[in-house]
Nucleic acid binder design. Structure first.
Length: 572
RNA sequence: CGGGGUGUGGCGCAGUCCGGUAGCGCACCUGCUUUGGGAGCAGGGGGUCGUCGGUUCAAAUCCGACCACCCCGACCA
């Protein structure tokens, strides 16, 4: 591969519209170009990295017994209507019509397609289990694409779906996928952590996310170093202690709190800790009005609320609705005296003997001495609070620590959600018809490349992990107009290529400084420099971009030394 | 969708307040010199100033509408 004949458009300056490091470097190093928000063209170097990750994914999936297939990107609305996701998936589903005005979607994921395939193809328990995967471009009409290819509208993903006779068989494949994903990320040379995730209401007992650790990662991870529990902060379980104040009241007492709406304002005004208050948040859950109570010092976790509700279809009331329901301005809602059809759900930490302060459902007033089950009835108790660093681990006495990561893989036990909705069944050994038990396993390929950069860069550019670098070796002839230098570089290029090494030869007629800067920017792990000085002394330089380590070798041993260093690194 | 911001040559930007017919750095092309960490000199090419409309003798500049993009938030099987 010759740089002079390749499309590797590097930038010296940082593009103005790229915020995070991986996005900036992918643009500057000539890996990608943006066509529109969240839509990218992969240029030769970028696509090579994508391909290398895809190859690793493919090898590990095959090794785990999965079979590669390829499904349609363009999918008819009917199957989405069948699963219920034509409406449930929401505006994130990219929709379009054909010339006959028939509705279609561009696939964001393929549960419907695969279920439709399998129900028409598999009949017997004897044919199970099956695990099918594909590596393909996916579409999601993200509300806000950002972070370059990290959260794009079109992206490369590996998705796999498994079909089983029972949960036990699913468990087995799920573990295999868990192991395969761990191997994939290890082989890519990335630091990662597996965390527990919640499937929401999509069913299934278990779900795990594979997080590449990065300080700029968009997901927060909470983990306990004592017992090893780790979870996405959005989902982390929590059992807050019931540290209620002494119960002294016999009846709630209204206090005037003019203009004090927020927890901070009210607690400051009354001279109380925020934890002495309960926040009342008003939601529409399906068709019902629900008041949700959490301690004043904490935030609600909406994912947990959705789980308690059993439906993801919920939203906070608009200001006008709040006024109508509570009879007071926003900021003064409370559980006492709401319309009778309003359900009240509360975090478990509020259970039991405890007096707290809530809104009075009257503008400019709060109630103190409010006690659950005496002054209002709680319909459901649950874990509703957003966990955070420093909280006590729900599994042991340890404390949560916070770190950040990029979600590159997510595995789910789906159970029978799709097979039941789409009538996909097999005959068991007793001749009875049963829905398939399913699992699904997603792995973000393009996102993994971005996360590799996010985890491996310095002030000069990318420092590719060997396994995902676009090429193995960059040869830099310092001056291509000098025949001796050129000759040595060309020969080395041939020798290494013949040995199966992927090589980029920087045969451009540029100043050495410019070539070195570009070399650092694109970050190829091994750089061989051929210059006048080195040739004269017969000491040619092999530099490791990651470690900065430099070896010098005579011309005659150069190719062998490069091969040896690659071999040694691969062995590590 | 709400809030904030930006659209001027491939990239980074100035010019807009105060209207007078587009400029700087980098990149690109030609020539000469130069060649181990983003060279020098000389010459050159490239922009209907996001789009549409309005005001004006005259609009990158003023007014209106729209579009795109970026950031924060909401959202994220």
């Amino acid at each position: 591969m010759r740089w002079s004949r390749s499309l590797i458009p590097t930038f010296r300056e940082v593009p103005a519209d790229a915020e995070i490091v991986s996005h900036q470097l992918m643009l500057r190093a000539g890996l990608v170009r943006k066509l529109a928000a969240g839509i990218f063209t992969y240029l030769p170097l970028g696509w090579r990295s994508i391909s290398r990750v895809a190859t690793i994914v493919r090898e590990e999936m095959n090794r785990a017994g999965a079979q590669e297939i390829n499904m349609p990107v363009l999918q008819p609305a009917e199957i989405w209507q069948e699963s219920g996701r034509w409406s449930d998936f929401g505006r994130e589903l990219m929709r379009l019509r054909d010339r006959h005005e028939r509705d279609f979607a561009l696939g964001p994921t393929h549960e419907e397609v695969i279920t439709s395939l399998v129900r028409n193809t598999l009949r017997s328990y004897r044919q199970l289990p099956q695990n099918l995967y594909q590596i393909q471009v996916k579409f999601r009409d993200e509300i806000r694409p950002r972070f370059g290819v990290m959260r794009a509208r079109e992206f490369v993903m590996k998705d796999a779906y498994s079909f089983h006779v029972d949960d036990e068989s699913l468990d087995h494949t799920y573990r295999d996928m868990h192991d395969a994903y761990s191997r994939i990320i290890e082989r890519c040379g990335l630091d990662f952590r597996v965390v527990e995730a919640d499937t929401g209401v999509i069913g299934g007992a278990e779900s795990h996310e594979f997080m590449v650790l990065a300080t700029n990662g968009e997901s927060e991870i909470l983990s306990c170093s004592t017992c090893g529990y780790a979870a996405n902060a959005e989902r982390a379980e929590l059992r807050l202690p019931q540290t209620g104040s002494e119960a002294t009241s016999t009846t709630p007492e209204e206090v005037s709190t003019p203009g004090k709406r927020t927890v901070e304002e009210v607690s400051g005004f009354l001279g109380l800790q925020p934890s002495a208050l309960a926040k009342t948040l008003l939601f529409k859950v399906g068709e019902r009005d629900v008041a949700v109570l959490v301690p004043g010092s904490r935030d609600l976790n909406e994912a947990k609320l959705a789980r308690l509700a059993g439906t993801p279809i919920l939203r906070m009331l608009e200001d006008a609705e709040v006024r109508k329901l509570s009879g007071a301005d926003v900021g003064f809602a409370g559980p006492v005296g709401l319309p009778p059809q309003t359900a009240i759900w509360a975090d478990r930490s509020l259970e039991g003997e405890r007096d707290f302060v809530t809104g009075a459902n009257r503008t400019d007033a709060h109630l103190r001495g409010v006690r659950p089950q005496r002054d209002f009835q709680v319909e459901r108790w649950g874990d509703l609070v957003l966990a955070r660093a420093g909280d006590t681990c729900p599994r042991c006495d340890g404390r949560f620590e916070s770190s950040r990561g990029i979600e590159v893989g997510h595995i789910f036990k789906l159970g029978t959600k799709y097979s039941e909705k789409m009538s996909a069944a097999f005959l068991d050994d007793g001749g009875r018809e049963r829905p398939y038990v399913m699992g699904c396993y997603g792995f973000g390929v393009s996102r993994t490349v971005a996360s590799a950069i996010e985890q491996n860069y310095d002030d000069d550019g990318i420092r590719w992990p060997r396994a995902v670098a676009p090429v193995d070796v960059l040869i830099v002839p310092v001056n291509v107009t000098a025949p001796a230098i050129r000759e040595v570089a060309e020969t080395l290029h041939e020798e290494l290529s013949a040995a199966g090494v992927e090589v980029l030869l920087d045969d451009r007629d540029l100043r050495p400084g410019a070539k070195f800067k570009d070399a650092d920017l694109i970050g190829i792990p091994t750089r061989v420099t051929i210059g006048e000085r080195g040739l004269r002394e017969d000491k040619l330089e092999i530099r490791n971009r990651r470690t900065g380590e430099v070896q010098v070798h005579p011309r005659s041993e150069l190719a062998g030394a490069v091969l040896e260093s690659l071999r040694r690194e691969n062995a590590d």
